[in-house]
Design a protein around this nucleic acid. Structure first.
Lengths: 137, 137
DNA sequence: ATTGCTGCAAACTCTTTGCAAGTTC
DNA sequence: GAACTTGCAAAGAGTTTGCAGCAAT
């Protein structure tokens, strides 16, 4: 994504477009569900002075403002996802890999299903599928 | 669950049925996706001498042996689930609540769907739905 | 008796916080 | 210039580890 769009994405939410934020958002978008560590590693080349605490603060601000999302994991460290469009995830059982999975047919199927079968005590806002299995080589 | 079945569940996996393990498993089964803290709180009454590190070790052993599962969360602390039967989860958006959701009709629908629509580079072993929304009061 | 488990406390790792100095609008 | 953001370093929280003593089989 070009820098101009990144800046836009920040300003839309009322966040100041500092060079650190731009770099962090670029990193999240270019990496695949990265941990903080991976983000910092990626940044250090072009931005060796960035502070760990700053990266945490930036990512928190992004999540709060709906610019990125946290990825759910069993346990390991925080991971982030810059794709805000509805999608699902493939979780590699042995590898630590998480891949995006887009499937509108599936989304329709599920929306249909849950529009008929209501859960009495719960209002669904979004539906996410976790497909757990193995990536083929 | 009665104590005898708990002991069975441990011995089946080759784990010694210590009183600490029995108490931890009972706690996980009686609580709703508890954190470690909740488990320890529950245990302290009847078992005030149990050590935090021991609880961590016990839970790890349980997960490794398929006696319980970890629950995925955005970020907060480890949570555990003693129900091994296939089921899904409702995540309260504001509350921190996670509830179980059983739905065989849904399971069939999804199994059907994915038996037709293969993902070329991925072998699905299990499908879990996360329904994110709000619990009605 | 053997093997495995617990309790404890110290060590680790990741994450959060506070504040002065620096930037953006 | 006002308001916000960064860097830094220290503190916090949760989790892991090692080992001597203890318990289960």
């Amino acid at each position: 994504m070009e820098k101009i769009k990144i800046v836009q994405r920040l300003k839309e939410k009322g966040l100041k477009a500092t060079s650190q934020r731009i770099a962090v958002l670029q990193a999240v978008l270019s990496l695949n569900h990265p941990t903080i560590e991976q983000i910092i590693t990626q940044l250090k080349d072009e931005y060796p002075t960035i502070a760990t605490g700053t990266v945490y603060k930036i990512l928190d601000a992004f999540v709060e403002n709906g610019i990125i999302k946290r990825v759910q994991t069993d346990n390991d460290h925080m991971r982030f996802d810059g794709i805000m469009q509805l999608h699902h995830h493939l979780y590699g059982k042995d590898s630590n890999k998480i891949e995006d999975y887009f499937d509108d047919e599936l989304n329709n199927l599920l929306n249909n299903y849950f529009s008929k079968k209501k859960i009495p005590y719960f209002d669904i806002e979004s539906i996410r599928i976790h497909l757990i299995g193995k990536f083929k080589r």
